[in-house]
Computed example of a mutant assay.
Amino acid sequence: MAASGRLNKELAEVGKDDKTSGVKAVAVTPGNLRELKGTILGPEGTCYEGGVFEIDITIPKQYPFEPPKMKFTTKIWHPNISSQTGAICLDILKDQWSPALTIKTALLSLQALMCSPEPGDPQDAEVAKMYLSDRKKFDSTAKFWTESYAQPVNEDDAITRVCEMGFDRDSAKAALEKHGWDESAAVNQLLGGL
């Protein structure tokens, strides 16, 4: 019971829109504090600037004595984050976790990692190799991935584009929400339903 009280308090803190810190986490389903969706705004002055990165967060039963399980769902080009699976190599999400840390501090640590990659302890060896051998190419690739995969979705524009294909607004919105605002997946669902 104490753990759920702490989680409620943490989510009240990290669930607010906070442009200063650039991190946020909310429950995926209201009332389920174990499955969260985190977002990190790409840090200014980095190749991730302007991006919005989503992170799946699973809170284990032993929390806060065990770290939250986190992985990027937004594709990102970074030595310490798998370009394939979104798995993260960060000590506080493994053996350096402390019950004094919170979901917000973990997200802030991920944001700091985006500013200062550690290619000597990579999650993605290919990305780390590029970071060390051709920094200019790394920066342009990371920026390209940010522009391709981490742009915030304008929900009204997405609904309008799907409606222009002949679908009603409510159906378009429902399909887009179901598919994480992926327009082609939403249209495929709507076409399959005809």
Rank of each mutant, 00 (worst) to 15 (best):
L110E: 15
G15P: 02
K94N: 11
R34A: 09
L108C: 11
A2Y: 06
F138H: 11
D18K: 02
L33H: 05
L7Q: 07
K136D: 11
K9L: 14
C47M: 14
K173V: 00
T39K: 02
N32S: 05
D18I: 01
T46N: 06
G51N: 05
N8K: 15
P68F: 03
A12M: 14
Q62R: 10
W97E: 04
K143E: 15
G5P: 05
G180K: 02
G120H: 09
T74N: 07
A3Q: 13
I92E: 05
G45I: 12
S171T: 04
I40C: 01
E147V: 07
I88K: 03
D121I: 06
E177W: 04
T20I: 08
F53Y: 13
K19G: 07
C163S: 04
D91W: 01
H78S: 04
I40D: 02
T141N: 12
T73D: 11
T46A: 13
S4Q: 13
F138K: 03
D139K: 15
L190N: 04
P99C: 11
L41A: 08
E183S: 08
I103R: 10
L41F: 01
L41N: 10
T74I: 01
E183D: 03
S140P: 00
P122I: 05
T102N: 00
L101T: 02
Q62K: 11
G42P: 05
G166M: 14
A186C: 08
C163K: 01
A142V: 09
G180E: 13
M165H: 12
L33Y: 11
S98R: 07
Y149W: 12
K24N: 12
Y48M: 09
D168G: 01
T141Q: 12
I159K: 08
L36C: 09
D91K: 04
A25T: 06
Y48D: 08
K69P: 00
Q189Y: 11
E35K: 12
T46E: 05
T105L: 05
C115A: 15
S98Q: 05
G50W: 06
G86V: 06
G86Q: 09
V52L: 14
E164G: 15
I76W: 02
A3C: 03
Y48G: 10
L190F: 03
L108Y: 10
I59G: 12
E10M: 02
D95K: 11
I57E: 09
E54H: 14
E66R: 04
E126D: 13
E147A: 14
S82T: 08
S4I: 14
K24I: 14
D170I: 12
K71I: 00
M70T: 00
A2K: 04
E183T: 11
S21A: 10
C163T: 09
